[in-house]
Design a protein around this nucleic acid. Structure first.
Length: 105
DNA sequence: GCATTGACTAGGG
DNA sequence: GCCCTAGCCAATG
């Protein structure tokens, strides 16, 4: 299938949307699940430009458990993660498990 | 169509 | 454990 740039963004959105509550994924994981394991940067860019409320973008964190960023307020992201059962301390996510992100239409 | 930006990552100091 | 540098990719102007 034709992997168009817009398609990649659509895949990223689909992957993030499949992240269950209380679980988080890194930008690299989402990028890999979208078909571009080296597009971790683009993933963050897509999230920022997409700003779709239907997508739990707060469940997407940086590698090493770092918060990464959010729409202007990283502390909001931290509060959201903790509200979903994700332990966050010292500005980093503790004991987060890697998800099996996959695209399945 | 080119140049800049950005919510990243891995490696080295 | 933190800061800086280099590399990669897509969106935007």
């Amino acid at each position: 299938m034709a992997l168009k740039t817009s398609d990649f963004a659509a895949r990223v959105r689909s992957v993030v949307r499949r992240i269950p509550r209380g679980r988080v994924a890194t930008y690299g994981d989402v990028a890999a699940a979208a078909g571009r394991p080296r597009a971790h940067r683009a993933v963050g860019n897509i999230m920022r430009t997409c700003r779709d409320t239907s997508i739990p973008c707060h469940r997407v964190i940086a590698a090493g458990g770092k918060l990464g960023g959010y729409a202007g307020d990283t502390h909001t992201k931290r509060a959201r993660l903790m509200a979903e059962g994700v332990l966050v301390s010292g500005g980093r996510v503790r004991g987060f498990k890697k998800l099996r992100l996959k695209i399945e239409d």
